Amino acid sequence: MDQYCILGRIGEGAHGVVFKAKHVETGEIVALKKVALRRLEDGIPNQALREIKALQETEDSPYVVQLKAVFPHGAGLVLAFEFMLSDLAEVVRHAQRPLAQAHVKSYLQMLLKGVAFCHANNIVHRDLKPANLLISSSGQLKIADFGLARIFSPDGSRLYTHQVATRWYRAPELLYGACQYDQGVDLWAVGCIMGELLNGSPLFPGENDIEQLCCVLRILGTPSPKVWPEITELPDYKKISFKEQAPVPLEEVLPDASPQALDLLGQFLLYPPRQRIAASQESACLGVLGPGLP
């Protein structure tokens, strides 16, 4: 830690406190994430190990935040990241009105390239949201905070917790208690982020898990086994029942968005996870949105 001079506190995530710091010898500005160990005998927390492993797998992508160093400090661990000026949540919060389509397309393009890279390396992020999408001084978007990431099992045999992803960006299968899921949870989150960029505020701002489902159902309608056959196998399907609601056309929800943007949004916000458009189709699906920023 002696090689860094702390410049200030950036914030606190679920898995550690983050500081802005300067490398004493090189002058390089970095973000230092301190991960505390509860007890020495507990070893390094799983979240930190997962984050390190995922970032090592994705270090070749310009759309994933770069991990520069990992070193022990006191009874904990410090992760040194490239410093990023802001995040997408701050960009949306300070925008005077919903972002111009060129900006939406530009951010979405970088997000999809990062997600596609993760998925190609069998990594599911599981906590995509605007606050975890960092923005550099030049406007480059990079995916950060891999503390909930998992190496994905292509055969679908592994069981995972459904208590992942920040609630507003949590896929319906997770809200229904799914323990077997795939990259579809990230693609749903991409749709929620896209909707927020178009809207200037979150599409599904639920205050608890049940209300979160209600927010989704209000717009997309009540899911049925006909539309989503796998829903009947989800653990909480029979525990929760909702009044039948028809879907609301997305053009009524987002009246200022272009038909092309709404069409693409609808391909992310689909109930059956396997039907959501893949991040690797980024070039094809973004072509319809018109020019982005250079």
Rank of each mutant, 00 (worst) to 15 (best):
Q212E: 09
P223G: 07
E173K: 09
S86R: 05
Y160L: 15
A278S: 13
W168D: 08
E90Q: 15
N208G: 05
S241W: 05
P205D: 03
M84K: 05
I143W: 07
V248L: 15
I277M: 05
S106Q: 00
H162P: 13
A100L: 10
K20Q: 12
C5V: 10
L37R: 15
S201A: 15
D42T: 00
E252T: 12
P72T: 12
F81A: 13
L174Q: 07
L293Q: 11
M110C: 12
L112C: 14
K22S: 14
L79A: 06
L85F: 03
S137V: 12
I231N: 07
P172S: 03
V24P: 06
G195W: 03
D60E: 10
L286F: 06
N208E: 09
K142C: 08
T26G: 12
G27R: 00
K22W: 04
A246D: 13
V115S: 09
M1L: 14
C285S: 08
Q212G: 04
E244Y: 13
K226F: 07
I123W: 04
D155S: 13
I10C: 14
A21K: 02
K239E: 11
F152E: 08
C5G: 00
K53T: 10
P202A: 07
S201P: 02
Q163I: 07
V227C: 06
Y169P: 10
E82V: 08
E41R: 14
L55N: 03
P255K: 01
V17F: 11
G266E: 11
